[in-house]
């Protein structure tokens, strides 16, 4: 069989892999932002209760140190063969293990992206909000976060290709994502060119995602406010 007919035969199989890869990426970004944002807020702001602050800040510090400190493959094996079986979740499908590990790791990185953005906001913004009678929480939500988000977006966009490409490591625990399926096709058909297709798909996914994120940046851009995407075309 020639390359083209192999490709046509296996296209549906490969396409399912694309969706699984996108699923892992979405989980990584999604869990990352859902956990990373509160963690950033927890790192920057205080509750006013000394003990509570101590506990929150220590937890976040250890979390970030752990998930940024270990290679992703080590994390995957640790969770798949060690932590999940130990807590009685050994039967959890590899996909979910991969999604959770990418998500937790993403949260560690993203918390630091958001922390930097929050800290870059001038203190006067909070002061002005409080001087109008806003509570601290309302000021964070209505003033600090909308600004931080615009500043964080270019850095945060970087997480998309990071997680997308990292997701291929889930191959190692048998998640049937794009790389796993490509390698299965190769071993069945001896057509190693499939790896070019695999690479091509990764590049297309990357390009499309970055385009989308850039469009988002431009959409929420505010005149004179850093984080505007217009000048960032050079990345593409």
């Amino acid at each position: 069989m020639d390359f083209i007919s192999i490709l046509i035969d296996w296209a549906p199989y490969l396409l399912t892999g694309v969706f699984i890869t996108l699923g892992l990426t979405a989980a990584g970004l999604g869990i990352g932002i859902i956990m990373g944002l509160p963690m950033a807020i927890g790192q920057v702001y205080s509750t006013g209760n000394w003990w509570l602050d101590k506990i929150i800040k220590s937890f976040i510090a250890v979390f970030v140190w752990f998930f940024r400190g270990l290679p992703i493959l080590v994390l995957l094996f640790l969770f798949y063969f060690g932590i999940f079986p130990a807590i009685g979740m050994g039967s959890l499908a590899p996909f979910f293990v991969g999604a959770i590990v990418l998500g937790l790791r993403g949260a560690a990185y993203q918390s630091q992206i958001f922390r930097g953005a929050i800290q870059s906001i001038n203190e006067g913004q909070m002061t002005a909000a409080r001087s109008l009678g806003m509570t601290k929480l309302s000021a964070i939500k209505n003033i600090i976060l909308p600004q931080s988000f615009r500043i964080a977006l270019p850095g945060w966009s970087n997480e998309y290709p990071n997680i997308l490409t990292d997701s291929a490591v889930c191959y190692a625990i048998g998640v049937a994502e794009l790389l796993t399926r490509s390698s299965q096709i190769v071993s069945q058909t001896y057509e190693a060119s499939i790896y070019f297709v695999c690479a091509g798909i990764f590049i297309i996914l990357n390009y499309a995602g970055m385009k989308g994120l850039l469009a988002l940046e431009n959409r929420i851009a505010v005149p004179g406010f850093s984080g505007s995407g217009e000048d960032n075309q050079v990345f593409l």
Binding site: G124, Q125, T127, R130, S131, G133, P146
Partner: peptide
């Protein structure tokens, strides 16, 4: 509540930039 009743204007304006 009191801060609503006591307005403040700052040296460097502190308008919400976004």
């Amino acid at each position: 509540y009191f801060r609503q009743k006591i307005g403040m204007v700052f040296q460097n304006f502190c308008l919400f930039d976004h």
